[in-house]
């Protein structure tokens, strides 16, 4: 999905086509079906609302297979929190982030939690696959409440860590979950990107050393109180 020229957004899907794309915003948690397809959709400025997180779900049904891809787009503005939007009942198989990132980005080594649910019911002890552009393949299992926790791996590709982008470099990931129910096979994905760990370009020992030097420079200010009547 890419940001188009103002006003509004243009969404594009790669690797296939979808029947429809639905948009939810913190202001309008109920899904709105977007105009366009099968591989490109437009979001008008009024549909974007005042800002914040926009939640997109693309879906299609082929025979007994139900496919769904979800992601979000964030633009900083005075906005409502996305919790109600994320938890709104949608049905089908879902990967629901417990929290969406605002400033700072999702970074290597950070932990994020996702709710797995089917027909709005939590999926306990269910497998969730993580696949990253850096080559990591990982499977985690949801707990009794359907919550799966992912720790983003330190797997940034060397070519991604360009000096120009620095710690704002991005690498994509996909979470996927499969489920069978009512004779149908469900496959749902959630994709987004993550950023490098800031400590990749930082040195804690040097930081501590310089801090200590600053402390040493201030020590001439310290003087014991002279005893009166001594």
């Amino acid at each position: 999905m890419s940001r188009g020229g103002a006003p509004g957004l243009k969404l594009e899907v790669s690797g296939g086509s979808f029947d429809q794309v639905q948009l939810q915003t913190p202001e309008v948690p109920q899904a709105v079906v977007l105009q366009g397809g099968p591989s490109s959709w437009s979001v008008s400025k009024p549909q974007m609302g005042t800002g914040g997180h926009l939640w997109f779900v693309a879906s299609k049904e082929e025979g007994n297979q139900v496919l769904r891809a979800s992601t979000y787009f964030f633009f900083p503005a005075k906005h409502q929190v996305p919790t109600e939007m994320l938890r709104a009942p949608r049905g089908g198989l879902e990967i629901v982030p417990m929290r969406l990132q605002e400033h700072g980005g999702t970074r290597e080594g950070s932990r994020w939690r996702f709710l797995l649910r089917h027909e709005n019911q939590a999926l306990a002890n269910h497998s969730l696959q993580l696949e990253t552009e850096g080559g990591t393949r990982q499977t985690v299992t949801s707990d009794a409440n359907g919550i799966a926790e992912i720790t983003f791996p330190r797997d940034f590709l060397a070519e991604r860590l360009t000096s120009k982008e620095g710690m704002n470099a991005r690498q994509d990931f996909v979470l996927s979950v499969r489920h069978e129910a009512g004779g149908k096979q469900y496959l749902t994905t959630y994709n987004h990107s993550y950023n490098p760990d800031r400590m990749r370009e930082r040195s804690l020992p040097i930081g501590v050393g310089v801090l200590a030097l600053g402390m040493v420079l201030a020590t001439p200010l310290l003087r014991r109180k002279g005893k009166k009547n001594a």
Binding site: G207, V210, L211, A212, L213, G214, M215, V216, L217, A218, T219, L221, L222, R223
Partner: peptide
């Protein structure tokens, strides 16, 4: 870091 270190110790006096 110099400023932070200096401030931490200087604030004692």
């Amino acid at each position: 870091n110099l400023l932070a270190g200096f401030m931490i110790v200087a604030a004692l006096a």
